[in-house]
């Protein structure tokens, strides 16, 4: 005898309406996961850039600033001055080949580049906890013609600010998508209550408590949300995989920035789980609200 089936005192959610709801939740989960992934990735990249550049400064020696001394020699002088300053861990002038390599994206690798006057560069590593005073360094470097110190703070701040803004937008998208999914579940629960008004009335009259009837809707919403959520997870994983492959993203370098592998999997699974939990609560809220109107 089908005793287990009687746990579902209302007909199981099925048909075109349910398929539509599963699809909506799948798309919402997909969007939420992409937004969450984008938010976490942008945050991680911003932090990496910030940390990576926090201890690296550059001194640039303009090629045309002095006709008496080549920029390469003036870079050595600048490095010599910097080495004695407290807070500077290392100051190394870059060789001509290294500078050519850095400039090759703009100048190319033609032989004619050898004829061009190249600037001098000094790579400076500073103590991130006790960095030297930039104004003081500028004073000291004034004796080297064409020397300009760049602590990267200006553009790093801009990039980090941009990444944070994008992260905030991604979080807002995530929250909005969650809210829309909840509204869809509430609307579905209400529709189901209307469709099964006769069954609900019978259960009410033969002594079913509101919580018992509401549980019928909760179970149905949970099943729909789990189906939709897991489909959305698979879709999101496929989208991210195809994007990484299509744009040749360095996944092996980017993934560790997001955290340990287990935490990525946990967060990915948490989204459909949270969707299912929220759907259950939304269905309970909608059904209890309607049931309380009965005598």
């Amino acid at each position: 005898m089908k005793t287990r089936e009687a746990e579902a005192a209302l007909p199981r959610a099925a048909g075109a309406g349910t398929a539509l709801l599963v699809s909506i939740i799948a798309l919402m989960t997909w969007l939420a996961l992409l937004a969450l992934g984008a938010s976490v990735a942008l945050g991680a990249i911003a932090r990496e850039r910030q940390a990576g550049l926090a201890g690296r400064w550059t001194v640039e020696i303009a090629a045309e600033a002095s006709r008496n001394k080549p920029s390469e020699l003036r870079a050595r002088d600048a490095a010599q001055i910097l080495r004695g300053v407290p807070g500077i861990v290392r100051a190394e002038p870059l060789g001509r080949d290294e500078i050519r390599r850095l400039l090759s994206p703009w100048l190319g690798n033609d032989a004619v580049v050898d004829e061009l006057p190249l600037p001098g560069l000094v790579d400076v590593v500073v103590d991130p906890h006790k960095p030297p005073d930039v104004a003081e360094l500028r004073k000291r470097l004034a004796e080297v013609p064409g020397a300009v110190i760049d602590d990267h703070r200006g553009w790093v701040v801009e990039i980090v600010r941009l990444a944070r803004a994008a992260e905030a937008v991604a979080i807002a998208v995530f929250v909005m998508v969650g809210a829309i999914a909840l509204l869809a579940i509430v609307a579905a629960a209400r529709a189901r209550l209307a469709i099964h008004a006769h069954e609900v009335e019978l259960l009410h009259v033969i002594g079913a408590a509101d919580r018992w009837i509401a549980r019928q809707f909760q179970v149905s919403a949970l099943a729909v949300a789990l189906r939709g959520g897991l489909s959305g997870l698979i879709l999101a994983a496929t989208t991210i995989g195809l994007t990484a492959w299509g744009f040749q993203l360095p996944v092996d370098r980017l993934l560790p920035l997001l955290g340990p592998a287990w935490s990525i999997v946990a967060v990915a699974l948490a989204v459909p789980a949270a969707a299912a939990f929220a759907a259950t609560l939304a269905a309970r809220w909608a059904s209890m609200r309607a049931l309380r109107r009965l005598p």
């Binding site: 089908k2 089936e5 408590a209």
Partner: peptide
């Protein structure tokens, strides 16, 4: 629901 489950409903409640 089957006949059995219809009759069983009040007992389940």
């Amino acid at each position: 629901l089957s006949v059995f489950d219809n009759v069983a409903l009040p007992l389940r409640l």
